[in-house]
C-alpha cells in the first residue's frame, strides 16, 4: 500500500509527471492528494477542460461529479479547524479505460452565484450527477436539459448537503458521538493455526 504525503516532496511522486501534463493540456494547476491527481481549473474553463481531457487525453470514462461546500458555519458535523474562503468546490473525476489514469478536476464557484456550465454536452453521463448536485447543493448547471429533483420529494425545500442545512434528527436527539459501541479487543489478534 503506497501512501504519499500531500504537501512535501510532491516532485518525487510517480504521478507528478502525468499530473503536470494534464494540467498543462487543460490550462490548470496540478495537485496530488494521496495518489489522486487533482487539476484545478478556472470555472470559465470548466467545459473546455473536459473537452480536452476527453478528446486529447483519452479520459473517456466519466466517473462522477459532485461538490464540496467549504463553509465556516456548519449546522451539522464538526466545523473546520481553520477559516476557509466560503465557496463551493465542484469536483468531477474522469478516467481512461486502458492505463488506469484518472483525474479529478476541480473548480471553485462563489456561493452568491452558484452556477457553472453543464458537462452534458461533453459527457452525457454527467446528466444525473449534475441533477444530484443541483438538488443537494443548489448549484445551477447552465445548459442542463432537466434539473428536476432526483431523490427528494418535489415539494422539498432546501439543499441537504449544504453545510448550513441542519440534520433534523440530530437536533431532536443528540448522537452518542464519539462513543464506540464495540470495545476494542484487549490482546493482539493472532493467526489461527487451525484455519
Amino acid at each position: 500500500m503506497t501512501t504519499s504525503p500531500s504537501d512535501t516532496d510532491t516532485a518525487a511522486h510517480p504521478l507528478q509527471e502525468y499530473a503536470d501534463s494534464v494540467a498543462e493540456a487543460v490550462g490548470g494547476t496540478a495537485e496530488i492528494h494521496f495518489d489522486t491527481v487533482k487539476v484545478v481549473v478556472d470555472p470559465s474553463n470548466w467545459v473546455s477542460a473536459f473537452q480536452t481531457a476527453r478528446d486529447r487525453l483519452d479520459l473517456v470514462f466519466f466517473s462522477w461529479l459532485s461538490a464540496i461546500d467549504w463553509s465556516n458555519e456548519v449546522a451539522a458535523g464538526d466545523p473546520l479547524s481553520e477559516e476557509v474562503e466560503e465557496r463551493f468546490e465542484v469536483l468531477a473525476t474522469v478516467g481512461d479505460l486502458t492505463e488506469g489514469n484518472r483525474v479529478t478536476f476541480s473548480t471553485d464557484i462563489s456561493k452568491e452565484k452558484a452556477e457553472i456550465d453543464s458537462l452534458v454536452e461533453v459527457y452525457v453521463g454527467a446528466n444525473w450527477h449534475e441533477r444530484e448536485t443541483a438538488e443537494m447543493f443548489g448549484i445551477q448547471f447552465a445548459g442542463h436539459p432537466d434539473l428536476s429533483k432526483m431523490y427528494l420529494p418535489d415539494e422539498f425545500i432546501g439543499n441537504p448537503l449544504r453545510k448550513s442545512f441542519p440534520l433534523l434528527s440530530r437536533e431532536v436527539k443528540p448522537w452518542p458521538g464519539t462513543v464506540d459501541v464495540e470495545a476494542m479487543p484487549e490482546g493482539p489478534s493472532v493467526e489461527n493455526p487451525e484455519a
Partner: peptide, 22 residues
C-alpha cells in the same frame, strides 16, 4: 476485526480466522 468464531474479545489472544476456514 478478529473473526467472530475465533474467541472472545476479552481474551488475551484472539485468533483471526475460524477453525477449518481454509
Amino acid at each position: 476485526k478478529p473473526a467472530v468464531g475465533s474467541g472472545s474479545t476479552t481474551r488475551k489472544q484472539i485468533q483471526d480466522l475460524p477453525a477449518g476456514f481454509f
